[in-house]
């Protein structure tokens, strides 16, 4: 499947764009996506943390992704 990944903050800088398309086999998880992104963009490894939100909720690594999900990279937050 083709996933549209949205990025904010430093994740956007690392990807070089606020949105990228990623090809992932059907049935793959959030953990698989993170592994693939960290292999392609090694600067992600240097972050204090990197979470994924699926449909506006924090997702665990075991969450299975589908092509219609809204998938957003959440680097360390710093509001306030």
């Amino acid at each position: 499947m083709e996933l549209n990944i949205i990025a904010f903050g430093i994740a956007k800088d690392i990807l070089g764009s606020s949105q990228v398309q990623v090809s992932l086999a059907d049935g793959k998880t959030v953990g698989d996506l993170l592994e693939q992104l960290k292999a392609s963009y090694q600067d992600f490894e240097r972050l204090a943390s990197l979470f994924v939100a699926v449909n506006e909720e924090y997702a665990s690594n075991e969450t299975i992704l589908s092509a219609t999900d809204e998938v957003v990279l959440i680097p360390p937050v710093s509001g306030g």
């Binding site: 904010f8 430093i10 972050l47 959440i74 680097p75 360390p76 937050v77 710093s78 509001g79 306030g80």
Partner: peptide, 28 residues
């Protein structure tokens, strides 16, 4: 509320200096 906001709410701030800029808390 403010302590939890800083840990969980997806908001990011970038400090702008004269000689560059840094996403706050991005790196350990």
């Amino acid at each position: 509320a403010i302590d939890t906001l800083k840990e969980t709410v997806p908001i990011w701030k970038k400090e702008i200096f004269e000689d560059g800029e840094v996403w706050v808390a991005a790196h350990p």
